[in-house]
Nucleic acid binder design. Structure first.
Lengths: 134, 134
DNA sequence: AATTCATGTAATAAAACCTAACATAGGTTT
DNA sequence: AAACCTATGTTAGGTTTTATTACATGAATT
């Protein structure tokens, strides 16, 4: 019923993520090298990031800004991830889960997120309205 | 407090929008030609679509699927847009609005949407979890 | 039959992205 | 201090994706 974006859906290209996170492409690729994110790829091998990935990148950035090095960041984030894996597994175990294909997920996304938001234009920053209704 | 995406923010490239809407690039450009969407452009002139645009495209698609032609679609959607303009103007008038730069909007987005969602990994479709925690 | 509409397709150019390699400023270790 | 490591910058060469423009087409309309 909400129009939240499915956080795991690969949607954003490098350029968008760079702007959103204020990280360089080099940094983003470096963090991927260290397994802190695992963006999907298009058929043509271009990265597609999810909101998860963006969250992750912002966390990495914060931790590095605090003076923690990559080893520390990895420890912290990967241990967090493990907690989530466990809770997810537990949750899934009790849920008689179904496997969705990418295509199915896209359809879900369309219905659940995007359609839900149609005609609900109430979350714009005031100054932005005029860019769409000049 | 929510992690809704700011619906006017230009984020998505053509390829993503094609998958999400199941429209061809030709169709999307054609609808833009008819002013039904007005996606932003990158410095390099590539389109960047917002959730608004995606909404719009899905509406166009639906209406066309119902057998309505472009003239009708335009009438319907542009009149709807006008209603919104009016309500937005009224709203804005009473609100002592501020004009945000793109950069400011990005910062707001980061804080308001993305950070709000950190560590809230509870909206995944069951089958998708394993793509991130293998 | 001629025209219009909505879309497909092809050609060409440029933007954005990829990988890989080398460069480097600041710490760290020997 | 010399050598090393870390996190990031930069550059080069290649590929993918997107842009524009032009022409093509089947279905509907005139």
């Amino acid at each position: 019923m909400s129009n939240k974006i499915r956080r795991s859906m690969p949607l954003f290209p490098m350029g968008t993520v760079m702007k959103l996170t204020e990280l360089s492409a080099r940094q983003i690729r470096y963090y991927e090298e260290h397994q802190l994110i695992r963006p999907e790829r298009t058929e043509g091998n271009r990265r597609l990031f999810s909101l998860y990935d963006i969250d992750r990148l912002l966390e990495v950035k914060d931790l590095l800004d605090e003076g923690i090095n990559m080893a520390g960041v990895k420890k912290i984030l990967l241990q967090e991830e493990n907690k989530e894996v466990h809770s997810n597994v537990k949750e899934a175990a009790g849920k008689d889960k179904k496997d969705f294909t990418n295509e199915e997920v896209r359809k879900l996304l369309r219905k659940e997120l995007i359609n839900a938001g149609r005609f609900h234009r109430d979350d714009l920053p005031p100054g932005e309205r005029y860019r769409y209704f000049h």
